[in-house]
Design a binder for these strands. Structure first.
Lengths: 209, 209
DNA sequence: ATTATCTATAGATCTATAGATAATGC
DNA sequence: ATTATCTATAGATCTATAGATAATGC
């Protein structure tokens, strides 16, 4: 039984390699042009020129600029996701936060990626919530599960469902980064730690010691 | 001494009236078309047709669709702003929150305005933070002042500056509304009250009560 | 006479799609 | 022979701007 999708076994090797190559070239060219000109100002033509393909080839791989930014967000989430998944099942939430903050802050501090944060956040709001399909966003799913086990250990206020709390926390982190990049009043890790502390104080159970 | 701006005294009455009239026609036409077609899908031409002016007239009044949405946000904040400003100077923060939630939830529940929340939020992130000019956004200034007096009464955690806390609270409220409108898991006022409770638990001083 | 408001329109950029090419499966 | 990847391009929409008109200030 064949699976639909990327991993169709050994079929079409040359073609697959070629496609992924142009896709990657377009992706990297796009990020570079985005950083240079700003997402809304830049022209698709310049991206295509840098990637040495036709303008239409861009649209073949990415329906719009937004889809490039969503791929960047997924790439940004990858290191934190792997680190969190490597934690033991009964790890405390603080360990989850620590890894999330460390890897996320690291990713967005590289070069001038931070300039794209507001646009990434904005796209994420317009696109990912519409899915309403938690499993499609792996980081949301992973953090959601951690919140659920934490709730079952009575680490969280029972007033709000743990999955909602998890979404809310991730939203807070992304919003904090987006506002940080336009007004970096303090180092990014400090900012994220502050937000996390604020969140955890608010979310801990009323009877908690 | 004449002030530059809208209120140039009694100069150009007919022209002023005419300009404001077309501007309002365009504004209302735009909101209507946005709700019907979605902000990114709709064509400026349809807005102009409904307002019975040329397409270029739209651009004369609004540099882009985003500027219409910013005006909607300012309109949305107006009722809460007035109610908050009418409070006595020493009113507790809970009173400020109550008014903010009541008026904001009311505004965005009218008809299908809620559909525009994600776009409004997204524009607000891309535009208003860049100003870095707190006074330009009256609601931010008003709530910021309330947070400052609350901090001076030791109602808030001293870890984070009160203006930052205020911005963060407003961001939380707007983000919660935006995610509510794509997934209304509970009534909007309940949602906003929950967010506020979470926030206040997190932001109250450690030695509190 | 000058200026603010608006229209008409040229040029830029995007979106949609018909067609070319080369890899694939039978 | 069929299909996936990519190109060339027509048509749609936007952005920028030169010009028309009518209100304004002197």
């Amino acid at each position: 039984m064949l699976l639909k999708g990327d991993d169709q076994g050994t079929h079409g090797l040359v073609r697959d390699k070629q496609r992924e190559e142009t896709r990657k070239k377009l992706y990297h060219a796009a990020i570079e042009i985005f950083c240079r000109d700003g997402v809304s100002n830049c022209r698709i033509e310049d991206i295509a020129l840098k990637a040495e393909v036709s303008r239409a080839a861009f649209y073949f791989h990415f329906p719009s600029k937004d889809d490039v930014l969503l791929e960047l967000l997924r790439e940004a989430e990858q290191p934190a996701l792997e680190a969190i998944n490597a934690l033991p099942a009964d790890a405390p939430l603080t360990a989850v936060f620590e890894l999330l903050i460390k890897h996320t802050a690291e990713f967005w501090s590289v070069q001038d990626r931070g300039r794209l944060l507001v646009d990434v956040f904005s796209v994420s709001m317009r696109r990912t919530t519409i899915l309403a399909d938690r499993e499609a966003e792996v980081i949301r799913a992973a953090v959601g599960r951690r919140f659920q086990t934490a709730a079952s250990r009575n680490e969280l206020s029972p007033v709000i469902p743990p999955e909602v709390l998890a979404d809310f926390y991730l939203l807070n982190i992304l919003a904090a980064m987006a506002s940080w990049c336009v007004q970096p009043i303090m180092p990014l890790p400090d900012m994220l730690n502050g937000v996390t502390l604020l969140f955890m104080n608010g979310a801990k159970p009323p009877t908690g010691n």
